[in-house]
Design a protein around this nucleic acid. Structure first.
Lengths: 229, 229
DNA sequence: GAAGATATCTGTCAAACGATAAATATCTGC
DNA sequence: GCAGATATTTATCGTTTGACAGATATCTTC
């Protein structure tokens, strides 16, 4: 067997299959990515830092994810996967109501969508790292995962909310309906976009427990009042 | 005159005075900073890129601003200066009303504050570069200028709005008042935080002209309805 | 015009970055 | 146990970054 006939080692992990320990390493890198990207933001986070956090050497990131960008996208997909199961069901129900529901149905569906949005945004299954990353990619909309979230979730959500607002107010889908939808989404978004500021204003440490229901109740009341105008 | 007795050239510009062409160069660098930081964000923007945009050599940035961070802070201060004159007056009027006004006064003051916030956020005196930078630092809250804006403007604003909500609803300054204030600020914030998304949903190119008043009217109606609950 | 002050440019630095190739280690199935 | 597949590490690369020191150019005042 000559030197030149010898196959070189793979530069990238296999698309399917692979050893169990590779799966475990991959998950460990994603966890590290969620933490470091969440703490530092996309640009400031370095692949070396993430590798250190994961307990691997830097080229492992290229092996499993191709590039820094690929890892960021994988982290974004992870967040989408863990937070949108309930959310997707709610959106599907809303679409059905848009097809054949009335004013009150529209209002209820909108409130359900906003509840689900709050859950998806603030409570990324209980890990502070995940929550911080989720907040980051909402801010960094031109980062890889940020753009993914916009295309996959935020834009469809705006569209559905605008249609629900029109239905809930019995009015056409015009500029006013869309403006109102943006304003209503903004009420919910404030809590994750300005998370630290909101916690400070309220003197809270987190949004867990009964506070969650308190926030939802306030937002629901505001939404219903605003759309009764 | 020996070599060693010769004074070295200054590494930094003088605190006061300086030549007129120095003032002009300084302004040119700030303009370039607003553009590049606005386009790229703090971390991705490079001092070389900014220098190129300004038509100077990179060490000029250290000469006038000490560091990349110093330039970012100067840009933030620039935005604060051009956008908060009217805003500061409105906040002062609001403080007076908090001292001795009634429910309706509180509601009107709150609406005025929100109008002023929208003006400060969306219409940074008409330059797209300024607007983009202003949006950036709202997102990048841990960047130098982002932290400046939070400390100088966003936090005091939240506090005043919470107090105005309490006054406008004739209720104590409790968690609910603060939650409602966050929600109401969020309505306004949505338009600059999600600027591209809002413009897309609406099919608009910008928020200029009569659209500005349309947004304000919608937000005012929502705020009044929400606080009537 | 000269001296001192300010502004600008040239040249350079150390560190860090994302990424690649090659070598080595470990796993899996027969 | 062996061969092939997968995973991990070591060594290295070219480039970029923010910043500094020294040299030079320009401005201002007398």
């Amino acid at each position: 067997m000559s030197e030149t006939a010898r196959e070189t080692a793979p530069r990238r992990s296999p698309t399917a299959g692979g050893y169990a320990r590779g799966e475990e390493t991959r998950a460990r890198i994603i966890a590290a990515g969620l933490k470091v990207f969440g703490d530092e933001g996309y640009e400031r986070a370095s692949t070396r830092q993430i590798a250190r956090e994961a307990g691997v050497m830097p080229p492992a990131l290229q092996y499993y994810f191709d590039s820094k960008e690929g890892l960021h996208l994988a982290c974004g997909q992870f967040i989408i996967d863990i937070s949108t199961k309930g959310f997707t069901l709610t959106l599907e129900k809303a679409e059905a109501i848009l097809a054949e529901g009335g004013v009150q149905d529209g209002l209820n569906a909108l409130c359900d969508v906003l509840d689900a949005l709050l859950d998806a945004s603030l409570f990324a299954r209980g890990s502070p790292d995940w929550e911080r990353f989720a907040a980051r990619i909402q801010s960094e909309r031109d980062s890889p995962a940020g753009a993914l979230i916009q295309a996959r979730i935020a834009e469809p959500l705006r569209d559905i909310c605008a249609r629900l607002v029109a239905q809930a107010t019995g009015s056409p889908l015009n500029d006013e309906a869309r403006l109102r939808a943006m304003a209503i989404i903004g009420q919910v978004s404030a809590f994750h976009v300005y998370r630290e500021g909101a916690l400070q204003l309220l003197g809270w440490q987190d949004f867990n427990g009964p506070r969650r229901e308190t926030i939802k109740a306030v937002l629901r009341a505001h939404t219903q009042a605003a759309l009764a105008v």
